[in-house]
Amino acid sequence: MESWLEFAKGPLFRLTFAIMLLGLIRIFMLDIWGIYKAYRKAGDKNMPWKLVLSRGLEWFFPVNRVARNRPFYSTFSTLFHIGLLVVPIFLYAHVKQWEKSIGISWITLPFDWAYWLTISTIVFAIALLMGRMFNKSSSFLSRKQDYLWPILLLIPFITGFVCAHLNVNPTYYQFFMLMHVLSGNLIFILIPFTKIAHCVLMPLSQVVCTIAWKFPPETDEAVCSTLNKKGAAV
């Protein structure tokens, strides 16, 4: 098991991390390339850039927009995302690993914060999964990967929690650690090829939406005036 762990932490991690990093850069560039091509073909080159930017920023704080309709979902989602991003990046043990291998370190989470953030992430992930399963409109819209992702994301958090905070004997420790590292690697590989790619594509989503309305010129305004909402944003 030790040699498996070494392999998963070493070559396998470098492989998956490189795939994630370059894969995200790749789809980001491809997205921009696609937008550029669409923009060249669009009938109406007059893009409301400011609106696109402000609306994109609005989506960064889902509390603003979604809170009105689904306050719990929105709050949970935000908190879940915070834990999801902060814990793996700023966890003391993770930063130490980076420092050991490439000599770069950054600020780390205090021990107690890491503890509570991990627990909160696990709880909110379960809550969101339940919400998706039992809310009719949500479950209607969901695909398989929408159910699988929260489960997959839970694995490294739970196993990591076991390794860092519970007093276990070496056999269990190594088993949980291996699961932790392997699931993390799996996540890295899947990120650029699944919906998690929204982590880099989100800022571009509003541009894509806006351009889509521009192919026959002034479609957006035509639609709005048909709906008797002249001058409103689409």
Binding site: P11, L12, R14, L15, F17, A18, I19, L22, G23, R26
Partner: peptide, 12 residues
């Protein structure tokens, strides 16, 4: 490119 780069990184 991405995949072979990643393999290269793994073989480092």
């Amino acid at each position: 490119f991405v995949l072979s780069f990643a393999v290269g990184m793994a073989l480092m």
